[in-house]
Amino acid sequence: MTARIPRRLSATAAAYVVCAALFAFATIHSSSFASAGHVRQLLVFASFIGFAGLGETLVILGGGLDLSVPWLMALGGMQLSIWSAGGMPSGLAIVLLLAIGAAIGLVNGLGVTLLRIPPIIMTIGTGALVEGYLMKVGLNSSSAVTAPKAAQTLVENRVAGIPLVALVWIGAAIVTWWVLKRTVFGRSLYATGANEAVARLAGTRVVAVRVTTYAASGAAAAFAGILLAGYIGQAYLAMGAPYLFSSIAAVAIGGASVLGGSGSYWGTVAGAGTLTILAALLPTFNLSNAALNIVYGLVILLAVGASRIARRGAG
């Protein structure tokens, strides 16, 4: 063996190999797949999973899990639409919603750390409370509200040919990478996820670290909901539902351990890309949503297997 590759890097690399292979295959099958217009569209789609999966990555790295993502997405999209219809400036509404998302995430984090409620249960609970609120504000799953111009601008506008949302996403990914790699918080997060008791004994502020990840997840999910509403042009209660699965699937495909302590956001970016390419690829084979589900499942198994082999080779 040549020089050892760090374990985390190789698991991430495996995710990119899966993603790139799929893209190459799709391009061979249909040359228009790699056209600028189509890639732009893929980037926009991927960014929804990317943001929903950003917070999920941080939470999972810390040994937790956030199942409230779909409802926070619906909250982001619907509340923005409602406030904008009521005359609130969209910029202010977006900032407020990020804060509210973070606050709900904070509640999740405090429940998990201080009340010692299992993350699955805590986030199901707060998610359902948000769902109840959204039903209360008078909108059931069948009705929809129109998304404001600002959210549509985020998704539709381009800078130098690249969708604005993709630039924001890349920016967020770089910031996340920097925070995870270069800050005390990042190192503490990996330590907490790897072994909470040891991290605590080593003086890591475990509670603060974990609470922060849930707050970040809340804000990121609300932002993903805002983007999604901007893309669809409207917001409705069930809009976040598919992201319960895809936010976690992107992290798993990205090579992170669901037990915490190992993984990277770049992996999740590849996971989001993989899920998005598959969703775009299968219809070109006249395959339905049913086949997409099956392929999603198989790809998770494949990617998890690949990252295991990569780790074994590197370790």
Binding site: V258, N289, I294, Y296
Partner: peptide, 23 residues
């Protein structure tokens, strides 16, 4: 595999199988 990951995958797969049988 972790139960969470294995059943995350089969969650999608069996949903797909069901949709394949009856859309």
């Amino acid at each position: 595999l972790e139960p969470f990951v294995a059943t995350l995958a089969s969650w999608a797969i069996f949903n797909g199988v069901a949709l394949l049988i009856l859309p």
